[in-house]
């Protein structure tokens, strides 16, 4: 038998507040947790005027629109071609969508023999105990090559956007050093001690993950990310002067180039031999040993180098704008 409780007493109980929260009537964290409302977007009249006049002077003095017929035609053609390009892209994509197989058909890629073959013959054909690694670095290695290049191209794009011109910033070296994280600690002794202890195990663990990619969970992408994180920790603790002794933009460039070229060349070889039914001279080895599964170990190392360098370079770009 439940007891009838007066309403004021009921409103003080936990269950009533739970119910309020559940039904969305009251947010218990509103006004108790620190919150700052976003300031409203306001602009001075002077700022608007300045922007407008700058835009006007850009068109009048730099492009010289009235006399420069070339720029005028280019701008008109640009608009026309951008519309045409968008329509063409939409058409191409829509046509491709209409060719997609219908859901639930027997001959769909989900139902065909590819996945069964990966599971049944993967170990003999690739030599990798880890089927996933065998898939991404042997059957579908071309795809992974593209992914590594995507990382490299992303770094190049960030470089174009964020790099600080060294010639223009001459004399501003101290400025840059001061701008580099005014509030954040420099030479923090706690961080330095922790980094001195933790960075070597982190990097060794990353190498272990890369080298064990064909034997268990792991591989180039995850191991490279671990190594990159270790490098970033080292940089945060000891500053640019110490990291630039062994890792500069030049090192990154050559490392990425060598890794990608090595990947592309070794994969070219295996595609060539495979497509022409020539026996590859690279032995598959005994499954389970570290030096086994042919090219997969080398490809893993290449991918790991690219990923580690990319992570570190991204961080450096966003913090300082260049190595």
């Amino acid at each position: 038998m439940s007891k009838k409780v007066p309403k004021e007493q009921y409103e003080k109980t936990l269950s009533y507040r739970m119910r309020q929260w559940y039904e969305g009537e009251k947010d218990p964290f509103l006004n108790t947790v620190e919150m700052k409302p976003q300031p409203e977007f306001k602009e001075d009249k002077a700022v608007i005027e300045k922007r407008e006049s700058e835009r006007k002077s850009l068109y009048e003095h730099i492009y010289d629109m009235e006399h420069n017929a070339k720029v005028r035609t280019f701008r008109k053609l640009y608009r026309v071609f951008s519309v045409i390009f968008c329509i063409a892209l939409v058409l191409v994509l829509l046509t491709m969508v209409s060719y997609l197989p219908t859901i639930g058909e027997v001959s769909n890629p989900v139902n065909n023999e590819v996945s069964r073959r990966y599971i049944q013959n993967g170990l003999q054909e690739t030599g990798a105990v880890n089927i996933v690694t065998g898939m991404i670095l042997d059957y579908r290695a071309f795809d992974t090559l593209g992914e590594s290049h995507v990382l490299f191209i992303a770094t190049c794009t960030v470089l174009i956007l964020l790099r600080v011109d060294k010639k223009k910033a001459k004399g501003g070296q101290e400025d840059a050093e001061e701008n580099d994280r005014v509030h954040e600690p420099k030479n923090d002794i706690i961080l330095q001690t922790v980094a001195r202890i933790l960075v070597p195990p982190i990097i060794i663990f990353g190498i272990y993950v890369i080298l064990g990619g064909h034997l268990g969970p792991g591989g180039g992408f995850s191991g490279g990310a671990v190594i990159g994180a270790g490098l970033i920790l080292y940089l945060n603790a000891f500053g640019f002067v110490k990291t630039e002794r062994f890792f500069t933009a030049k090192t990154y460039k050559w490392m990425s180039f060598c890794a990608l070229a090595c990947y592309a060349l070794s994969k070219c070889y295996s595609f060539y031999t495979g497509a022409n039914h020539i026996k590859s001279v690279i032995p598959l080895g005994t499954p389970g040993a570290i030096l086994s599964s042919g090219l997969i170990l080398i490809l893993n190392i290449c991918v790991g180098i690219v990923v580690a360098g990319t992570m570190y370079t991204f961080y450096v770009m966003f913090r300082k704008g260049g190595h």
């Binding site: 509030h183 954040e184 600690p185 961080l191 922790v194 933790l198």
Partner: peptide, 21 residues
């Protein structure tokens, strides 16, 4: 071991940032 090293260090850094800003 890793967490006992890294978690206090990161908390220390965040606290220091909060105190300075």
């Amino acid at each position: 071991v890793f967490l006992w090293f890294s978690s206090p260090a990161s908390s220390h850094l965040i606290a220091r940032l909060e105190v300075t800003t």
